[in-house]
Structure formats: structure tokens, C-alpha cells
């Protein structure tokens, strides 16, 4: 199977990057290639970077409460750019009912505080197996 490439980004103004850096290190240690784009990324920057990097996954960490603005913005842009097979997932302080709403618009799992890095690694590996393949 191809190397799994995951783009990790922190959208919005929030600078709390402890979680995303722990995840970055854990994914690396699980043999994945992690593209870290840094803080304060706008949705269009994230989508453009994910496309150029041909990441299979975009993981976003949002702790500021702006998740209902930022996740949909990225999901929408992925569709517009013809990159909807990039799997979007995330983590942060996101109430269950919001996570359910996000799922409806095509966002994958939202990991909340207390999730282990192992759960996230397993989730990515399992999802990667089911990602669609396209023809030349």
C-alpha cells in the first residue's frame, strides 16, 4: 500500500498546538508522513496545501469553539476543487451534537479530549484501506 500522508493543520486564531504536535509525533512514529502546516491556517490554504501534497487525510485541531465555521468551510472547498476524496477529520473541544452535524456534511471522526493516539492511528489506517482509487 502507498505511504499514508496526513496533512495536519490548525485553522483559526487559536494557538494551542500541544495536541496537534503530539498527534504529529504519534503519526510519524506509526510510519506515516505528516505534513504540518503550522498555526492560523485559513480553509483555502489548508485545502490548497492538501491538494499539492496529495495527502489522503486532513486532520484539523480546533479548541476555540469555531469548529462549526471552519470544518464546513474546508469540506466545501474540497468539493469545489475536486478533491473530495481527501478525508477530513479532526479533534478538539467539540460537543457531540456538533460532531453529528459535521458528520452529515462529510466530515469524518472528531476526536475529543481523552482520545488516545492509538485510536487515531487505527482510525487513519482503517479509513485509508477504504479510500477510493482513481484511474489514470
Amino acid at each position: 500500500m502507498d505511504k499514508i500522508r496526513v496533512l495536519l493543520a490548525k485553522p483559526g486564531l487559536d494557538g494551542h498546538d500541544r495536541g496537534i504536535k503530539v498527534i504529529a509525533a504519534a503519526l510519524r512514529d506509526a510510519g506515516m508522513e505528516v505534513i504540518y502546516t503550522g498555526l492560523r491556517q485559513t480553509p483555502d490554504k489548508i485545502v490548497s496545501a492538501a491538494i499539492q501534497e496529495d495527502a489522503q487525510f486532513i486532520g484539523m485541531s480546533i479548541l476555540s469553539g469555531a469548529h462549526m465555521t471552519l470544518f464546513p468551510a474546508v469540506a466545501k472547498l474540497l468539493k469545489e476543487k475536486g478533491a473530495e476524496n481527501i478525508h477530513l477529520f479532526g479533534g478538539g473541544i467539540v460537543p457531540d451534537q456538533d460532531a453529528a452535524k459535521l458528520e452529515e456534511i462529510g466530515v469524518g471522526r472528531i476526536f475529543t479530549p481523552g482520545a488516545t493516539t492509538e485510536e487515531i492511528v487505527t482510525y487513519i489506517r482503517d479509513t485509508a484501506r477504504d479510500l477510493p482509487e482513481e484511474t489514470l
Binding site: 486564531l13 476555540s64 471552519l70
Partner: peptide
């Protein structure tokens, strides 16, 4: 956050925050 980062509430970066 917009205040902490020096942006007014109507700045594009403040959206949702």
C-alpha cells in the same frame, strides 16, 4: 481570540471566533 490576536470583530480572521 480576535481580541487576543489584535483583530477587530469584523476582520476576516475573526469569523466564527
Amino acid at each position: 481570540l480576535p481580541t487576543l490576536m489584535g483583530y477587530d470583530s469584523d476582520h476576516a480572521f475573526a469569523k466564527g471566533e
